[in-house]
Write a protein that binds this DNA or RNA. Sequence first.
DNA 1: CCACCATGCAGAAACGTACCTCCTCACCAC
DNA 2: GTGGTGAGGAGGTACGTTTCTGCATGGTGG
Lengths: 358, 358
Amino acid sequence: MSRSTGRRLGRAGIRDVAAAAGVSITTVSDALNGKGRLPDATRSHVREVADRLGYRPSAAARTLRTGKSGLLGLTVTTYGDEPFTFTEFAYFAEMARAATSAALARGYALVILPATSRHDVWSNVALDGTVVIDPADGDPVVTELVRHGIPVVSDGRPGGALPVTGWVDNDHEAAVLGLLDHLADAGARRIGLLTGNTTDTYTRLSTTAYLHWCERVGQDPVYESYPAHDPCAGAVAADRLLARPDRPDAVYGLFDPNGTDLLAAARRYGLRVPEDLLLVCCSESTLYAATEPPVTTLSLKPRRIGTAVVQILIDAIEGLDNGRPVEQVIPTDLIVRASSQRRPPRTTVSPPRGPSGD
Amino acid sequence: MSRSTGRRLGRAGIRDVAAAAGVSITTVSDALNGKGRLPDATRSHVREVADRLGYRPSAAARTLRTGKSGLLGLTVTTYGDEPFTFTEFAYFAEMARAATSAALARGYALVILPATSRHDVWSNVALDGTVVIDPADGDPVVTELVRHGIPVVSDGRPGGALPVTGWVDNDHEAAVLGLLDHLADAGARRIGLLTGNTTDTYTRLSTTAYLHWCERVGQDPVYESYPAHDPCAGAVAADRLLARPDRPDAVYGLFDPNGTDLLAAARRYGLRVPEDLLLVCCSESTLYAATEPPVTTLSLKPRRIGTAVVQILIDAIEGLDNGRPVEQVIPTDLIVRASSQRRPPRTTVSPPRGPSGD
DNA sequence: CCACCATGCAGAAACGTACCTCCTCACCAC
DNA sequence: GTGGTGAGGAGGTACGTTTCTGCATGGTGG
């Protein structure tokens, strides 16, 4: 019994197209992929027959043959017990969205894979490269990927001398220092910090930058740290911070929800913002433009980071890089709103608050 | 030159493991996959050798052979011109996160694919099935996927008689009606709506439910619609709604940012919430627990939806379903806070409420 | 002692594509 | 006529698995 005849059970294959078009498999492949030396007549004829048969090349076969799958992993490290903290905050959502768009524009797609998943999941999908968000020091997944020759680009400086292909990050120290200066310029005498107790690079760098700044200006550090993955813990920590005897007159919150947490805590203690308490938090949420008062936010530019990470990764995959690791620093953006200015820029139509002296 | 010898350029293959273990390829495959009839001694020996060589089976080859890739598409339809509105709001983020976890728990991974991407992207990845979020009526991508025999489960009732494998959705009409009753019970005389001008099912069903309710209770509809994908348009629309001569004394906002938009607009017009204006908005954000005042939100339970969608899809892929479409309705959850109660429950000094369980 | 069966394993055929190697013309210059 | 050349296309192999089929071997019942 001939193996090339008989009803195709599944989809039409390249063989069927070749047979229907009266040409060879090679010709079909070349015509559809724009390779080889073929007259336009043959090319369009093959294309037409393929369309008519509803032919879709098998991604698996192509991947097996070429070694390229067109898939990039998007790995998120987990915090605490949460199985998967993807998009816990707006940052991840924005970053993932930008990365997806950028990848798509270059013909790649993103596969979401948590760093903690077991081997079988990782090896069940053929990856051309991987984006790792905020890898832990000496992350075993990253090291294994690199050992297998898969390009890895991380969002956030990799700790523990991870041999990644490249990374993209903000200059967190500079951002924090600039923001603290901004608060000091606005009149802050004692600036507090709401931070996390996790060991990720972002938290660590930001916290040490704060400590250095305190040392430089001779202020005693005033901070509370909490498990950032717990949505309630932030509110409690904000409360603790404002309940301290050495209560700060300005606070920077490292995480997205800290702004509302601190606003709520301030209300509970009868503190007016910004008159009694200056506020800045790191967030990508547009909600802070419409709070009372609007809150000054530090944006880490996740869109730019997501885009940059993917570009670097794909360049490395396609051999467009020079072979050396690429390190790219994305500037942050301090969006100044009423919460960090003693004199509100323009407080709406409603009756202005008490004419607080400058 | 022998083809089976020579230095393997890439990773070790199953052949190398077989050679190193002194068994046949079949034995290696069986040992590693727990099939065939092999004594435990052989099995563990093979496994050990494979580990030593750092053997990882080729996902592409396995997919080609078995026809299953272990990949599920996660498709998001786009709004307006935005290339990709994935996770524009917290809903998508939560939903995607839950779907990813659920898929992973059953050995699948999710690939993010916008519905608008061209064919080449879709056919470049072997999908076992696809989750479609809020498909447009007669979505061409969905119809094509179904034609190719790929199971499709949608988040949101599919319009246009799309022949999907199943769908999961909230009962949006019931949710809106219940919520309007809640506002009426709290004393609302004229309830306004802030809605979108897009044609997606959620917006459409919610709006018509509102109109029906108005008809039933004999209230003139008071609503403003705006392009939901534009973050600024919401604030403007909220302002318009409260600037109307027939200003409502209660408002329901269909989209996540509407809560803060409406709070800000209320402040501009000197309206107190909830005394002068009752407020509810549809949101998954925990930020509304800490606004001033806290805002009552309608949760669509994206976690449960994401999980359910994936379960249905995988059941269909693995033939665990009965072959008929599965339709599942997830109840919504009205989280009542101060903004929708004339008498604020308790304006305490104590730290805010505990975790918002699923 | 032979047929029989379960056990343990090997051979080899696919899966569908890409691409390298070659073949066959027709045409032209010499 | 002959060799060269370039266009147009065919054959066949390899990518790395899974799995069907089959072949030994040793133990067991008749």
